[in-house]
């Protein structure tokens, strides 16, 4: 991999060709919030939190799917980007029924952390309060769609790392739901290996081990990333 230089917020940053802008930024200590990104899994550019301004382009680009190019000039921290990131987090909180006080991931939740990181002091948009199901059919784990943010990390870790492809997305738009097999109860899935990787990569409390009560669940996402690295698969 050849080395090249890009400019992040006017600062020269050295990186390798083939890297994403997100990787280059993080290596240089420039913090960008992310949600759908997970180290080792494929990138989808869905949450739009890592949006950056790219000089010469009228469009905003997701840093996780944008590849570095020589002398690229990136801005990561403009007023507009900060505002949009906060709106994204606000919209996520407004979308489903996020009640931290009863959530097993309370205190170890990336959505919660994002709220603090983007300075969200309240949600200005109406709460949409959709009716969402909870599938607790499986003896070890449960999935609560009230807390799901549709980042699709579970879908990707299951397909790309475990190779089981138990999870997928059904429906579209606001009605999209993560489904097990072809929308079967999780316990009846013929593909799930009960490996638990989806539990560890879920950024929120949508997937959790059933024996953990409110605030007790400590995720081990780095374990999955290490596993991917050791196997020599997936992305760096």
């Amino acid at each position: 991999m050849a080395a090249l230089e890009i400019f992040v917020n006017d600062r020269k940053v050295a990186c390798e060709s083939g890297a994403t802008v997100l990787q280059a930024c993080r290596a240089a200590g420039v913090n960008l919030p992310t949600l759908c990104h997970f180290k080792g899994l494929s990138e989808v550019g869905a949450c739009r939190l890592c949006l950056v301004e790219l000089e010469g382009s009228p469009r905003l680009a997701a840093a996780c799917t944008l590849h570095v190019a020589p002398n690229q000039r990136i801005r990561t921290d403009t007023e507009r980007l900060r505002r949009y990131r906060r709106m994204t987090v606000e919209l996520l909180f407004s979308e489903r029924n996020h009640v931290c006080s009863v959530c097993s991931a309370n205190g170890d939740c990336e959505l919660q952390e994002l709220g603090y990181a983007v300075g969200m002091d309240h949600v200005r948009f109406p709460f949409l309060n959709p009716i969402c199901n909870l599938d607790a059919s499986k003896s070890e784990f449960a999935i609560d769609h009230n807390r799901c943010v549709l980042c699709t990390r579970c879908v990707r870790v299951c397909a790309e790392v475990e190779g089981a492809h138990n999870w997928d997305v059904q429906g579209r738009g606001f009605l999209s739901r993560i489904v097990s097999d072809l929308n079967q109860p999780w316990a009846e899935s013929t593909t799930c290996t009960t490996c638990g990787k989806c539990i560890d990569v879920c950024p929120v409390g949508a997937l959790w081990p059933k024996h953990k009560a409110q605030g007790q669940f400590e995720k081990r996402p780095e374990f999955v990333s290490e596993l991917i690295a050791k196997r020599g698969r997936g992305r760096p």
Partner: peptide, 17 residues
């Protein structure tokens, strides 16, 4: 809103709002 695929947040939740 009905035709949004639901992948990205601005379109999925933004159109709904």
């Amino acid at each position: 809103m009905d035709e949004s695929c639901g992948k990205c947040v601005p379109c999925r939740v933004g159109t709904r709002q």
